[in-house]
Structures are given as structure tokens and as C-alpha cells.
């Protein structure tokens, strides 16, 4: 199988990787580049646990062929914090108890981050709609939605 050379910019750092044409972005991030904060669950695009931000858009990396992303800028959960300071979403998730087992958490954080970047002042209904592609089995969603709403409310208009 022919390998394809691509460059991925992950959390601000360039990585050159030779990927197989069938390889998914999730596998490249986790197994090749060591960004294991992004979790794999269904590998069917259903649960959202593998969500990362690709060129500003939230993307389920388990269904995205890595070869398509030459030159893309990717943000994973590891890229949310800056200089030891957490993203407001990470703070809010802690404060509101939006994390239990935490397996869904990176996916929710990335979906919410991409969404708030586009729409910093959403309604609660818009938030719920934005998170429809992420499954959480532990929390019942309320505290996750509360956390995102809190960040939206606190960001300057």
C-alpha cells in the first residue's frame, strides 16, 4: 500500500507523517503522534468522543481519512490550554461538575469550543443543538450544557 506524505499542524506544531490511504485521522493523532487525549469509542461517527477541530470546524476524526488533511491546522484537547492556563470551557466543566468518567469530555470540549468560536453568544437551545453529535452516558447532559452556557454568558459581547 502506498504511503502518502502529509503535514499536519497539531496544536501549533508541524508534524510530517507518511500515512496509509485508509488511515483515519484519529489513528494518526493517537497512535502515530501520541495525542491520546482524543478518545475512540464507536469509530462510526456516532458518539463524538473523537471530535477535534480541523481548520476551525469540529470534525469526528474516526471517520476522516488522514490523507485528506495535508496542511490542515488541527486542535485537540491537549491544545486547549495555553501557558499553563486552561480554556474557560475546561474551567467551566470542572466548576459545573460536567465531568464524571470523562471519556466523552475531550469530544464535548472540542465540539463546544468550535461552536463558541463561531457563535459566542448562543441560546441554550442552540447549545443543545450544537452538542447533538456527542454522547455522554454518565451526566445526563445538564451540567455539560450548564458549563457551556456559563462560558457563553461570561464572554464579552
Amino acid at each position: 500500500m502506498a504511503n502518502i506524505d502529509i503535514t499536519l499542524n497539531v496544536n501549533g506544531k508541524d508534524h510530517r507523517v507518511a500515512v496509509r490511504s485508509t488511515e483515519m485521522l484519529l489513528e494518526v493523532l493517537r497512535d502515530r503522534l501520541g495525542y491520546v487525549g482524543t478518545n475512540k469509542v464507536c469509530a462510526q461517527g456516532i458518539c463524538g468522543a473523537c471530535t477535534v477541530i480541523v481548520d476551525g470546524k469540529s470534525t469526528t476524526s474516526c471517520l476522516a481519512l488522514a490523507a485528506q488533511f495535508d496542511g490542515a491546522r488541527i486542535i485537540t484537547v491537549e491544545g486547549l490550554e495555553h501557558d499553563g492556563k486552561l480554556d474557560p470551557l475546561q474551567e467551566a466543566f470542572m466548576k459545573h461538575g460536567a465531568v464524571q468518567c470523562g471519556y466523552c469530555t475531550p469530544g464535548f470540549l472540542m465540539s463546544a469550543r468550535a461552536f463558541l468560536n463561531d457563535n459566542p453568544h448562543p441560546t441554550r437551545t442552540e447549545i443543545i443543538d450544537a452538542l447533538r453529535g456527542n454522547i455522554c452516558r454518565c451526566t445526563g447532559y445538564k451540567k455539560i450544557i450548564d458549563a457551556v452556557e456559563d462560558v457563553a454568558a461570561r464572554s464579552a459581547r
Partner: peptide
């Protein structure tokens, strides 16, 4: 929770 920092940071 006492593991929350690890969990939100991936």
C-alpha cells in the same frame, strides 16, 4: 472531583 484536572486536559 479530584481527577477532574486530568480529565479536562486529556
Amino acid at each position: 472531583r479530584n481527577d477532574v484536572l486530568y480529565k479536562v486536559r486529556g
